[in-house]
Amino acid sequence: MPDKKETHTIRESFNFAIEGVVEAIKTEKHMRFHVWATFMVIILSFMYGVTKSEFIILAITISLVWITELINTAVESSIDIVCKSYHPLAKNAKDMAAGAVLVAAMNSLIVGYVIFDEKLDIIFRQTFEFLRNSHKHVVSIIFVIVIVAVIWVKSYHKEGTPLKGGMPSGHSALAASIWVNIFFLTENIKVFLLTFFLMLMVMQSRIEGKIHTPLETIYGALLGGGLTYFLLVVLKV
């Protein structure tokens, strides 16, 4: 007698399909990125009022990326089950499946650029003008940028912790950033010199506390002051 084929109800089939998508999201980092990107596109669509036709195009494009990524995951899993050792045909199959995802992703970037180009260009220009004409907001953003830059350089040198010790000195960077900001804000030479000496005192305190070396404080001051000056000149505050 022939073997009975396993049959499933429609509900069970839907459950299996949903479980497949969920498993792919849980195990594949690329799928998690697609989820994040999908939410961002949907939010942008509502924020900037895309038309129905544009939304349909976006939905098809997003679905295509998801479909190719799911197929790619299924192909890789199937090959890993069958092939326990390296085989050139297995490599070709995986590369081709990954290539399908790449084509779909590139297509999504082109579609997104065409649809959101003019809308985002207006927003970026308005944001730039707002920041350039509002010094307090610019200063706050510059402080954040300086802190991020300090943490990034520290992680590169792998010395100290993000908030203490290591190359460069974060306190010196922020002190120099404040000094340069005041240089742009005031024409009073006394205020300029006082803040300069305060910056030197901050640097000296880091050295005397044996938290930083003189070179680390100098690098910190150059990083914070130089980055702040560059951003203020670019933003023409």
Rank of each mutant, 00 (worst) to 15 (best):
D3K: 12
K5N: 12
T7E: 15
T7I: 13
R11M: 11
S13F: 04
N15Q: 14
A17G: 04
I18M: 12
E19Q: 11
E19C: 03
G20E: 05
V21H: 02
V22R: 14
I25S: 01
T27A: 11
A37C: 10
T38A: 06
I60F: 10
T61K: 05
W66R: 01
I67L: 07
I67P: 01
T68L: 04
T73Y: 09
V75G: 02
I79N: 04
D80Q: 12
L89S: 13
A90Q: 10
A93W: 08
A100K: 01
V101I: 05
A104E: 00
A104F: 01
L109H: 07
L109C: 15
Y113V: 06
V114N: 10
V114H: 10
F116R: 04
T127G: 07
H135E: 14
K136M: 14
H137A: 12
I141W: 02
I141L: 09
V144E: 12
I147H: 07
V148F: 15
V150S: 05
W152I: 15
S155M: 14
Y156D: 03
K158M: 06
E159A: 15
G160T: 03
P162R: 05
H171E: 09
A173P: 05
S177E: 10
S177K: 03
W179Y: 13
N181W: 12
L185Q: 11
I189F: 09
L193F: 12
F196A: 04
V202M: 02
M203V: 03
I207H: 02
K210H: 13
T213A: 05
E216K: 08
I218F: 10
L232D: 00
L232P: 00
V234Y: 07
L235T: 15
